[in-house]
Amino acid sequence: MAGSVKVLKRPGTEGSYVRAASKGLGVTLKHMIRPYKVTQQYPDEKWELAPRLRGTHRMAVHEDGRAKCVGCGLCPTVCPVNCIKLIPAEDENGERYAAIYEIDEFRCIFCGFCQEVCPVEAIHLGVHYENAEYSRERWVYDLERLTELEHPYTALWDPADPTSQ
């Protein structure tokens, strides 16, 4: 069914200014005395962040403190803006690990592909957005910094139902 157009009757030149103005004054007075404020006192009260917000990265660690990353090279491959630098290495037991792992948070577009593609669920995006630095170099997070961060992981999917079935 086709929708109908509602034609409003516009006041022409016949309107009374004083009465219209008093009506407007009534509206503003109502807003002036009502206690509701839309302003959020930001640094004092913060937003309640959505659990799926994609923010600053975090690197998951084993119980002994080693990063979970196995240096497979999938995340630098999938990254659309090339912000991940990974140089893998092998230890004496033949296990691969990331010798250098750096993420340029300034360049990152927070698409979350790295988290999605990671086979060992090592790299995660986090529910965190308050980053500020004095220089660009400080925006390149190395492995140590990534493992030390403590904000919650982004819930890209429901942990109870990882394949979304």
Binding site: P11, G12, T13, E14, G15, S16, Y17, V18, R19
Partner: peptide
Amino acid sequence: VFFLFDRGRLIRGAGREA
């Protein structure tokens, strides 16, 4: 003034007439 005279004569808008 405000109920009889003020009918588009005090402040004339750019309405149909214009």
